[in-house]
């Protein structure tokens, strides 16, 4: 596990009848790294993830997972290694029960029922959702849905976890739970978020995308404290680093 590095080289992409959304992106993710991808609304973060997952295909440039290039032909191979948690868990949970949903992926890879059960129970246990096993997804709270969606990806035992805004629309407790959970995973992680405090806690490295281009790529501790840089990309300092709103005393 985790021996795959992810490489994005000179990626260009535009939706039909629109301007270029992704312009010449390049970066490399080493095994085990966890990377935060941040940027203003519409910067192209979700689009980038879709490109990596092979849901969309680039106009030029390439994406390599290990030594396999993401193309239509290699998709089954790629998708076994990459697991993506969608921004809206409702898009992901479509089976009648949480258990069935987590079993959906493994069953598609024609594993034996014993192995499927093993993986599902392990995944549910890893996210602390064993008690939700027989519940119907539409009956879960937002946080529980998120957890179930993560389990349904973990059950496929991917090397690289890709998440689109995992903490959006969660209350502080559920958010904390998800952050703890993410930090407990040893997978290579690629996380987009507007929750910069979460990125600070979960990712050593941060990439800022601004209008489809990389504006900065480096240590989270350096990038997220650089208010000039953040400001020029339409972002703000993480809340925990902003000056106190009551007394105005500076933190940085």
């Amino acid at each position: 596990m985790f021996q795959h590095k992810l490489e994005v080289r000179n990626l260009h992409f535009s939706y039909p009848h629109s301007h270029e959304i992704i312009k010449d992106l390049s970066f490399t993710v080493s095994p085990g790294e966890s990377i935060g991808i941040i940027g203003a609304n519409g910067a192209g973060k979700s689009t980038l993830l879709m490109l990596i997952m092979g849901v969309l295909f680039s106009d030029s440039g390439e994406i390599m997972v290990g030594d396999i290039c993401v193309t239509k032909k290699t998709l089954p191979l790629i998708r076994e290694k990459l697991g993506m948690v969608f921004q809206d868990p409702d898009d992901q949970l479509f089976m009648p029960t949480v258990y069935e949903d987590a079993a959906f992926g493994p069953r598609n890879y024609k594993l034996s029922e014993k192995e499927v059960e093993n993986r599902v129970l392990n995944a549910l246990e890893a996210v602390g959702a064993l008690h939700l096993k027989d519940k119907a997804p539409f009956k879960l709270s937002g946080g529980e849905k998120r957890i179930a969606a993560i389990a349904s990806v973990l059950s496929m035992q991917p090397d690289i976890l890709i998440m689109d805004e995992p903490t959006s629309a969660l209350d502080p407790k559920s958010r904390r739970k998800i952050i703890k959970l993410l930090n407990s995973f040893t997978h290579t992680k690629l996380i987009t978020s507007h929750d910069l405090d979460m990125i600070m806690e979960s990712c050593e490295r941060t990439i800022i995308i601004d209008k489809g281009q990389i504006a900065a790529d480096g240590k989270t501790s350096e990038i997220l404290t650089n208010s000039v840089l953040l400001d020029s990309c339409g972002l703000e300092l993480p809340l925990s680093l902003q000056n106190c709103t009551v007394c105005g005393s500076a933190k940085v």
């Binding site: 849901v55 998708r79 809206d88 992901q92 479509f94 069953r107 598609n108 499927v116």
Partner: peptide
Amino acid sequence: RAQRVYQAMNLRGFSGEYHAK
């Protein structure tokens, strides 16, 4: 919405056939 659901299915190895338990 249906497209996103379908994408999510594809990403988990769905290939036009569901292997029910």
